[in-house]
């Protein structure tokens, strides 16, 4: 039996990276002095299904840092989320990910 060679593995990885459609995009929610903290937290819980703790953490990040990347994924998915956020009256934008965290 032969042991599979390293170069083959490398090729597979780089090929899958090339065709991957999941270039990370992110949904940014921006702070404003109008939206209630309770409401923002409710939206994060009910729409994204986030836990109370995660929703509170993201809400506080929006509040104290002025914005938070609340979701990551494909461009199309982030755009759909943004429209939903605008439906709730939250100010959200979509951008190419990069500086996560």
């Amino acid at each position: 039996m032969s042991v599979s060679t390293a170069p083959e593995v490398d090729r597979e990885v780089s090929a899958s990276e090339l065709i991957s459609p999941d270039t990370p995009w992110e949904l940014i929610v921006w702070n404003d002095p109008v939206n209630l903290m309770s409401y923002v937290s409710f939206v994060f819980q009910s729409y994204f299904g986030y836990s109370e703790a995660k929703a509170a953490k993201l809400m506080m990040q929006v509040h104290t840092e002025g914005k938070s990347a609340v979701a990551h994924g494909s461009k199309e998915k982030m755009e759909a989320h943004a429209v939903a956020m605008h439906g709730f009256g939250l100010w959200a934008t979509v951008q190419k990910g990069g500086n996560r965290g």
Partner: peptide
């Protein structure tokens, strides 16, 4: 504009293109 905000910052063309697709249903 606050009710119907732009979906991307600092890119008026992309924002308008997206608006054409989504604003009416929003």
């Amino acid at each position: 504009l606050r009710l119907l905000p732009n979906v991307v910052k600092d890119d008026a063309d992309s924002a308008l293109e997206f608006r054409q697709l989504t604003e009416r249903s929003l």
